[in-house]
Design a binder for these strands. Sequence first.
DNA 1: TAACAAGTTGACCGCCCGGTCCGTTTGGCT
DNA 2: AGCCAAACGGACCGGGCGGTCAACTTGTTA
Lengths: 198, 198
Amino acid sequence: MREGAERPLRADAARNRSSLLAAAAREFAERGPDASVADIARRAGIGKGTVFRHFPTKEDLLAAVVLDRIEDLAALAARLANADDAGAALLEFMDEAAGRQQQLDLSFLRESGEVNERLAGARERLFAAIIALVERAQAAGAVRGDISGMDVILLMCAPNHVVSFVPDAPPDLWRRYLGIIFDGLRPEGARPLPHPAP
Amino acid sequence: MREGAERPLRADAARNRSSLLAAAAREFAERGPDASVADIARRAGIGKGTVFRHFPTKEDLLAAVVLDRIEDLAALAARLANADDAGAALLEFMDEAAGRQQQLDLSFLRESGEVNERLAGARERLFAAIIALVERAQAAGAVRGDISGMDVILLMCAPNHVVSFVPDAPPDLWRRYLGIIFDGLRPEGARPLPHPAP
DNA sequence: TAACAAGTTGACCGCCCGGTCCGTTTGGCT
DNA sequence: AGCCAAACGGACCGGGCGGTCAACTTGTTA
């Protein structure tokens, strides 16, 4: 049998796999990366052993969920890459990004970075797409010049994190903080920044 | 024996208590609120049982550390309350706040909120002082009008959090993101915010 | 339909954690 | 010095975690 030739999953296995991924996505989103495998399995309606048959490690499961998110965001960024209003495109990207990954914050940045080959690749593609969005927005004069793409990547999820501390937050309060942060990215009234970008 | 009349600690107990608090502060700052009690005890050079003699619960220990931070910040805010330049005072407060509590983020906002009476009181005093700083800065025209004190409280620690995701971050990279966020609080170029303050 | 590989399962393992307990040590008072 | 309450410390406990395994079930293929 060749390396790349993967035999198709059995029907029940494929069904279990997809409900497992869905359950893991919900559970990680709600409880963070420390959600227990047993809870995820229960939520997916499968046994704990089955989880480890599909993913050798909890970290691999998390990486699979994160990979989905990354590819989702990369597709979004690609779709916005040629928008007419580059500034609005960047804002829309940050808005959608924050909205989609409620709570599953930047863990995809460092977590399992070297563990998973595909994940590292997808992350690079996402980063490149974001950087392109930022540079177009800068060229259009919608974003200050002393900002790097990495700045946007880092600030992207701050709204969700910030909101996670208010007890009964309305579900779109994060938009308020995205608004504030995005205003900080605008050229109007920008002060020189005290430290170079990473 | 009266209620309020607390007998003084024995000399060794007082010594242990303070080194315990110091170790806990360092350990919580480095590893987050999930730092283990055993590690803290080892770092303080005392037995695990001694930790629980001083604080009945790990959460109480964390609350004590957090209380220190809160009172520290409240004193800072009080010192800046009458500064000449109200805008600079607010910026300095956020700068110092972010700098002092490297990584021990906003947990003090919700964690152990109702557990500890003193902590809740100190938190209210800190909040009031921050709100006063913000209102003075607004009156001076240094901060946009549609911002509440709570916004500043929530955004205060975002720089630290954001920076915690970059692998080998220089120790004052957070200043960059504080700069961006603070620019977002300025009146110049502010767009209307999409959601009311909490 | 018969037979087998692929898939499933929950009991089980080792580990680490917060918290308890009691035998031991030690500082303060007379 | 001698006493004792206060303080100490580490073995210990119960619980939950990630991960394993061998017995069992099921989809697929001929």
